[in-house]
Write a protein that binds this DNA or RNA. Structure first.
Lengths: 239, 239, 239, 239
DNA sequence: CATGAATGAGACTTCATTCAT
DNA sequence: TATGAATGAAGTCTCATTCAT
């Protein structure tokens, strides 16, 4: 594994940061506050939704955590449902763009590319509260039909395309065996999401005797197995 | 892969069937109902919890679906929370025992053993509404501290133990490379659960253009990759 | 005070015992049980109503305490309200008859007569669970309009008449000063009932630092004060 | 009896009025309501609890009578139980202080002091809906263990102390015979409370033929008897 | 007669949402 | 804009009462 995470194309601006200009300096603190409101509300909502789920999170709690009153929340989001959808959109859109870039300009082997994809994803997203979103989405999609379509279009399909392209690259270059593309992509995505969700569910509960695995290490082992199964010939020294 | 599913010890009686032989068959319909009530209520609750989540499922709905009135539900379960816990217990507790047996008496290679474990799991559980439980548990553990412990003790640890023993068997017999045991077990369990959750979340939503993968096929591909990465030497013909 | 309680006219058959023939010997235990049911139910209800009040007493509890099933209770009393009224009637009717007899044949002074009345009342009633009934009646009359009339006719008026006659006797014999009859009777009744109620409310609660007075001693002091205020001339030696 | 009720220390401002001077008078009607709400709710609750008892009073009724909606009640009191306790506190806590003051500065004889105590009590409390509270407390203490302690500490003990001090004063000045202090105090308190309870139970029911006594007159007769029994020598002309 | 499973009206309480200030 | 008091629909749970066995 080479240090792909240091690639210049992957800048430090957070993928989560969506608020276009959080630091416009020509406004007073009052104005700045007003500008920041939606973001603060979304952050508060994100944290609470991830912690307690959609139904168990009260609108007033979100407002309090964002430092505003209950009424103000409804000035920005017309309902709790819309707030939830905004949180999902905010945190999961634009998730894939960075990865596309990475695939496009990666110099190393395809195995390294995929390892890099995983590492970047974990740094930018998996180890972030935003990853907890997927947990709630899974639990709530069936109650939010519009979300299913949005999420499919915005997250699932791009993610599939991203990983498919990386796998295809490996196949095209003779590095990977030719296997059903989507299934392989799925196998690569699964551990990422699964691990992230675990961190935000059981990982956050104080249980005695639980099977505790360092998420990132676990991910690497999982990925090593998958890649070793995927490559036509393993050039690496045996572990 | 050999047909381990035909092993005599793994019979076809459903793990869910809990009242196989009511002692006296001469009961009137009232008595017969009474015997069946808990199971009917658990089934109704399972279906609704998986579909809508814990909070969004109303107690009265569960009762209606089971064909009884609101009050009757509370005759059997003292609260919605207890009902939920009963659903979890009912559907997951006996899940692991069968697997243990399979590991104990399996004749084939360890790769085959793990493939058989997966197939049995899918038949008995994955393709069943009960597979949606993990989704709810993930979403709700942080609101049910006791559930976290129960689920850890009753499901997570036994499942880990089960897969660890299967992997260890492979290592001991020289079939598998020696890798961190728990991480490998985790890598084997992850796709099972992940697939189950997907089936009961996005898989149940009508989206256009979604990345539809046959769950069982996807599982097999995932497992093939993992096993190929795990074995010291692949005896099978290239796919 | 002389030992009027030993007067022959006051026999040992309880004033509470209303069941006409509890000991008819020619029935088997099943029959006897059936005969005793109403009484057992009333006793159970009495105890529970006094302890918890009308609303907080559940029909099923009463049945359980009487050793029968919920349905059986409704075989004897068509509703919880009727059960309550039956308990009241059972325990408070016929309450006065004995006293009337006592007034009619008392030989001593009127002060002694009243002291005897009090002592008998306390023995037969005040120190009995039945005395707790008055507490519930007070709390519930306004919800049971019919009960108000019944209670007035059956208890209040006879009690007033009883004590008025005793006071009148004292006035007629020149022992008591001539004062408003009903008010004096009321003053004599008040401490009896008040004390009984206290025993069944605060007296039954575990409070620290409570003002604990022995009920019977308190009653005697109260009565002594009243009588001393009532008599035209006190023949007793100063206390 | 001298007119102790005219004592300057005992003014006519109601003991119930708790928000005498809202600090800023320029509030809109919304604000003004907010200030008054707790009192309005307590008044409504008092009336209904006294009329129907604790259990038979529905939270919504209280809210309606106070002119607000169900939810608003819960903005001020977290449960019906807390509302009940608040009613008790509000109406009884400040009850004793006035009496203490009266004892401290009374100029007349001890008999007159006690008569004044009674008269003030009746004016301030006995003739007020608040007098019905003791009835509910008696009926409910056994269901509210904490209430028993609170009521004992806040009402019973202070009342006992108050009357004991008045009696002791009489004994010290040679006006009263030396009798068991607590028992005498109890005898003085009993008619007060007993009368109050009667007014709010049978006294509020439309019965024909009931023994109707003017409560205040009845109280006076009762007290006259007690005092005449208590004094060492009666200076008053015979009634 | 006796049982106890079943019912469903009704009570308490919560909380998303509104709106006067 | 911002507030937070007020609302009332909705949900959980209880329990008096019924009725098939």
């Amino acid at each position: 594994m080479t240090a792909a995470a240091a690639q210049p194309s992957i800048t430090d601006r957070s993928v989560i940061n969506v608020n276009p200009s959080p630091k416009t300096p020509e406004f007073g603190p009052r104005q700045r506050r007003k500008q920041a409101r939606p973001q603060e509300l979304l952050d508060a909502a994100l944290a609470l939704f991830v912690e307690k789920g959609f139904a168990a999170t009260r609108a007033e709690e979100v407002a309090q955590r964002a430092g505003v009153s209950k009424g103000t929340l409804y000035l920005y989001y017309p309902s709790k449902e819309e707030l939830f959808k905004a949180v999902v959109r905010q945190n999961l859109s634009n998730l894939i763009a960075e990865g596309q870039e990475l695939v496009a300009c990666h110099q190393g082997s395809s195995a390294e590319l995929i390892e890099d994809l995983m590492r970047v994803w974990w740094q930018r997203f998996g180890s972030t509260p935003a990853a907890g979103i997927h947990k709630i989405v899974l639990a709530e999609v069936r109650n939010f039909p519009e979300l299913a379509q949005f999420y499919t279009d915005e997250v699932m399909i791009p993610a599939d395309r991203l990983f498919c392209s990386a796998v295809q690259r490996g196949v095209d270059r003779g590095e990977f065996r030719a296997l059903p593309l989507h299934d392989v992509a799925h196998a690569l995505i699964a551990p990422l999401i699964f691990t992230a969700i675990e961190c935000h569910s059981f990982g956050a509960c104080p249980v005695r005797g639980g099977v505790t695995i360092d998420p990132f290490t676990g991910l690497k082992v999982h990925l090593d197995l998958l890649l070793r199964g995927l490559v036509t010939r393993d050039d690496r020294a045996p572990t």
